[in-house]
Design a protein around this nucleic acid. Structure first.
Length: 546
RNA sequence: GCGCCAAUAGCUCAGUAGGAUAGAGCAUCAGCCUUCUAAGCUGAGGGUCGCAGGUUCGAAUCCUGCUUGGCGUACCA
């Protein structure tokens, strides 16, 4: 938004010297001596035009037409940077523009008319959510918020499987604890069973409800335990997600792919397209013909499909629903599996560019400099619920989002628990609360926002810095959509809060008289809206008082 | 062994369609409250961007090799 005018005049200048439309990179120089805004376009063109960057820069400037109220100086520096010094009118114009968006600032129509699906969490109901699921949930939910902000119609989906080995293992684990609680203390626990305390809780619940009615080891009883465990786990999973402000529209059961014949259909399609072959009683996917390392099994010799088949069928299902974009959120342990799925989809003629895969790295939990271990099947697991109990939902969300998805995230429990200036979440929320408190005070004094914004009253450097930062917001949202990196928004809001705090210290608001007071109130108000809308995307509350 | 991902300040991390003096937070040190919230602001110190080569006017960013760490490497999901 802030850069549009500059881009426009540069583009026109370029076309005058015979260079067609291209992407111009514009940035804010770190050193303010270089002006407010700069571009390296002359350097980019040097190789192509076989001229020195500085000469090209001069040529661009010579052909530049601009409003002298907007741009007060243009010069060449260094190897060929073109630097612009902006006039007050430019900042006023931008600020007025932002104010015009009101509470909707940051929304755009980029995705209007397009449908996106974001699939996240997708944990099977074999246990409680742990921290890894938390990172998955928060990344997925936030990306969905970003898509929504850009105007996409968004479907938030949870894909799960309530059949198979792991679920049978769950039933066996509960069954063993059930017997142990009934007094058979040496009843054997499954080798790779689920050791968490929640299994004991479930077993105890079953005893409280039914006594020893299900003690006999038969398939009916185990099936009952499996179903009971599934429902018990799902209830807990949903309540945990709800606490984190994560809501999903659809829970898609893998089983429906079998029931509706979609797996069968896929198998036929694979055979018709000659993408599979039989070997040792198993059905193999010809992945090596699709550019992959080696072939993999689609149907085991036991007749059971591997995960690949339903995964492919599920994605076909997504394609059939007509999504323009589909986002999958996976932990790094899945990094090797999705290329196979995509390769097959591609071979079947689907446009796999519509599928975006986010791979996030693992979390380590640290307290007092020591790593806290967490593992689902060992007894001592740190559940997501416990973490929310300790630090609250806002902190959990922010900490899970504040690093790049490809970074091993170190979650510092000590810092997270701290309710002080060290904790970045509070720094952000404090800025918002501070602004709200100014308006509260204004209200008490009978001061309200005027119709006229009186933006032209603003003249301090810090006010212009703030305007510049606010104006970046829409672009930041777009950037995080492009890169599928929510942390960009965290960093942005942190910077914005910082600049606001500086403004707050340097510029009085309510003590001034109108119209400057009004101008600053309006600037504070657009800051508030930006912070609030940004926090909303992150799923974090924007308190009015702290 | 092979594959993917990483390595940047004491710590946690930004920064990679090659660009100006590599940034932030925390920690350390020094300042600022009769003034709209000090959960704030101001300043200082702190770096062989893992190592070695290469590409070029220019490399944290691209290429090659190496070292270290994480995750994979199933007819588990």
């Amino acid at each position: 938004m802030f850069k549009n005018y500059i881009l426009d005049i540069l583009q026109k200048s370029l076309s005058k010297i015979g260079i067609e439309q291209r992407e111009i990179i514009i940035e804010y120089p770190k050193n303010s001596d270089f002006g407010d805004i700069s571009t390296n376009i002359a350097m980019q063109l040097a190789r192509e035009l076989k001229k020195s960057p500085r000469a090209i820069a001069q040529e661009i400037i010579d052909n530049l037409e601009y409003d002298a109220n907007f741009i007060t100086a243009v010069n060449i520096a260094g190897a060929g940077f073109i630097n612009f010094k902006l006039g007050k009118s430019y900042f006023h114009f931008i600020c007025e523009n932002i104010a015009g968006f009101g509470e909707n600032f940051g929304s755009s129509d980029f995705g209007i008319g397009k449908k996106a699906q974001i699939e996240y969490v997708s944990a099977n109901p074999t246990g409680l959510l742990h921290l890894g699921h938390g990172r998955n949930a928060v990344i997925g939910d936030t990306l969905a918020n970003i898509y929504k902000k850009l105007g996409f119609t968004t479907d938030r989906e949870y894909y799960f499987n309530n059949a198979g080995n792991q679920m049978r293992n769950l039933a066996r684990s509960i069954f063993a604890r059930y017997h142990q609680l009934l007094g058979e203390s040496d009843y054997p626990f499954p080798e790779d069973g689920y050791h968490g305390d929640y299994i004991i809780e479930i077993a105890q619940e079953l005893i409280d409800l039914y006594g020893n009615k299900f003690a006999e080891d038969n398939t009916e009883n185990l099936a009952f335990f499996q179903k009971y465990g599934e429902e018990w786990n799902f209830k807990r999973i949903k309540s945990t997600l709800e606490r984190l402000n994560v809501f999903q529209d659809t829970y898609y059961n893998e089983n429906t792919l079998y029931e509706s014949g979609k797996i069968e259909q896929l198998l036929n399609e694979l055979k018709e397209n000659n993408l599979v072959y039989e070997l040792d009683n198993a059905l193999w996917l010809k992945l090596s013909q699709m550019g992959m390392e080696e072939d993999r099994v689609a149907v085991k010799s036991s007749g059971e499909p591997t995960y690949r088949l339903p995964d492919i069928a599920y994605h076909i299902e997504k394609f059939k629903r007509g999504y323009d974009e589909m986002v999958d959120i996976f932990g790094s342990d899945h990094i090797a599996t999705y290329p196979d799925v995509l390769a097959v989809l591609k071979a079947l003629g689907y446009d796999v560019n519509k599928v975006k895969v986010v791979i996030y790295q693992f979390i380590t939990l640290v307290e007092n400099g020591e790593q806290v271990k967490m593992s689902k099947r060992s007894g001592k697991s740190y559940t997501l619920d416990e973490l929310i109990d300790e630090v609250g939902s806002d902190v959990v969300r922010y900490f899970f989002l504040m690093r790049g998805v490809n970074t091993h995230l170190e979650f510092d429990l000590g810092l997270a628990k701290e309710q002080s200036e060290k904790n970045p979440v509070f720094y952000l929320q404090y800025a918002h609360a501070r602004i709200c408190s100014i308006f509260q005070k204004a209200k008490e004094e009978g001061i309200y926002l005027s119709q006229n914004h009186y933006i032209t009253e603003l003249s301090e450097q810090i006010e212009f810095d703030l305007i510049k930062k606010i104006a970046d917001f829409p672009e930041i949202i777009f950037e995080s959509y492009k890169t599928l990196e929510p942390h960009i928004i965290c960093d942005y809001l942190y910077d914005l809060a910082g600049i606001f705090h500086q403004f707050y210290h340097n510029c009085r608001i309510l003590q001034e008289s109108d119209p400057l007071r009004q101008a600053r109130l309006h600037l504070a108000n657009t800051t508030r809206i930006t912070l609030k809308n940004g926090l909303q995307i992150l799923g974090i509350s924007a308190p009015e008082k702290m």
